[in-house]
Design a binder for these strands. Sequence first.
RNA 1: GGAGUUGGCUGGGCAGCCACCGCUGUUUUUCUCGAUAUUUCCUUAGGUGGUAUUGGGUUGACAGGGGAGGAAAGUCCGGGCUCCAUAGGGCAGAGUGCCAGGUAACUCCUGGGGGGCGCGAGCCUACGGAAAGUGCAACAGAAAGCAUACCGCCGAUGGUCAUAUUUUGACACAGGUAAGGGUGAAAGGGUGCGGUAAGAGCGCACCGCGCAGCUGGCAACAGAUUGCGGCAUGGUAAACCCCGCUCGGAGCAAGACCAAAUAGGAGUCCUUUGGCGUGGCCCGCGUUGGACUCGGGUAGGUUGCUUGAGGCGUGUGGUGACGCGCGCCCUAGAGGAAUGGCUGCUCACGACAGAACCCGGCUUAUAGGCCGACUCCAAAU
Length: 121
Amino acid sequence: MSEVTFGREKRLLTTQAFQAVFGDTHHKVSHPNFLLLARPNQLSNARLGMVVAKKNIRFSVHRNRIKRVVRDSFRLMQHDLAPVDVIFLVRRGMDKLSSKDQTGLMLGAWKKLHKKLRITS
RNA sequence: GGAGUUGGCUGGGCAGCCACCGCUGUUUUUCUCGAUAUUUCCUUAGGUGGUAUUGGGUUGACAGGGGAGGAAAGUCCGGGCUCCAUAGGGCAGAGUGCCAGGUAACUCCUGGGGGGCGCGAGCCUACGGAAAGUGCAACAGAAAGCAUACCGCCGAUGGUCAUAUUUUGACACAGGUAAGGGUGAAAGGGUGCGGUAAGAGCGCACCGCGCAGCUGGCAACAGAUUGCGGCAUGGUAAACCCCGCUCGGAGCAAGACCAAAUAGGAGUCCUUUGGCGUGGCCCGCGUUGGACUCGGGUAGGUUGCUUGAGGCGUGUGGUGACGCGCGCCCUAGAGGAAUGGCUGCUCACGACAGAACCCGGCUUAUAGGCCGACUCCAAAU
């Protein structure tokens, strides 16, 4: 069993890393409450970046909760994914769901992305 | 017991597994920088490499311990801190506005005074100036600020007429009148007596008001006190305004340090041989090149960054806000942004809501739960 940590090397840290994915998106997973963008990278592991704007989610408590749920679901599913850079973009209404529903939603989303990656590779 | 006022505390708990971010310790785990001792080589000083001991930094591993709030919020005030500006003063602008105190400071807090509300505990209060000026006031009303005559009253005085002759009466014409009625939120003090043609601070008494004194109070202010003034000076200043007091600007994306790549700048050296232009060719001139160094500086990184007007306990001064002394404690520090996820049990089934340089306030949001003090009503003793 490999590690399910979520250290610094598994996150998108710089503006360039974000721009690279925005500018050259290979895969998309869409949902009324969020959007996933993915692009293969040259590393040994997948990396995650998140955009949770105040414009879409008003209260910081809700923004924090969404980020935690997304991050934790990614952490648990990371080894099912190929080495890709993924960006999570939130859409309006995500804060209306409970933590449990958000977790279920995200686990489904990662599986979907995994499938898409496997077909193309 | 019921109704109410007010001050304070708390803001689910326990266990397991998996993660995140600081801190401390252990560990030759990686890379790296010194110090000391000794030694190799070049060798005067000195330089260079090795070995041993030791001290950091860095990167792993393991262990321990810590990790959002009472409002972290709104960003409405005040201050610290940082940079910039600044001789001094004025104007403009903004803020503020009963008095005294507290404080680093405040528009905050405490105590006191005035006014208003409540049976009361208590609550509310933007509370300087309207006899400097300007402005504003719906409707009603005759009149709303140099007051005013609609009804009413009077008509002494003057006028007209009658009577009549030391006059008397009529008219309500001039005129007088703010007592009464009516309008209004408000009609230029109130009550009584005198007075008068009728009235009127016109006069007087008491009450009220203003001014000056006296007494009490640091003061705001109060007073069953004294004198003077017949009483002027209606309201509105979160209308302009006047007066007193306060205020330089920008903010941690402040600021400090390190510093790639690329382009450009400065200097030194190299190319005595290059390329391009001028030219028929050479010299020459212009332009272009390479290496190194330097400073500015972008990305990025480090720092600022949590020990502070700090907390808790205790003693002491003060009505109190708070001050002073002593003892103990260190209690988030992230950075695309940690403080979480899943599972189980449990109860009253969990509200508002997430630190971003730091404090002191204010305001707003908030499911519940707990404690204290006081008031009114009812009953009992």
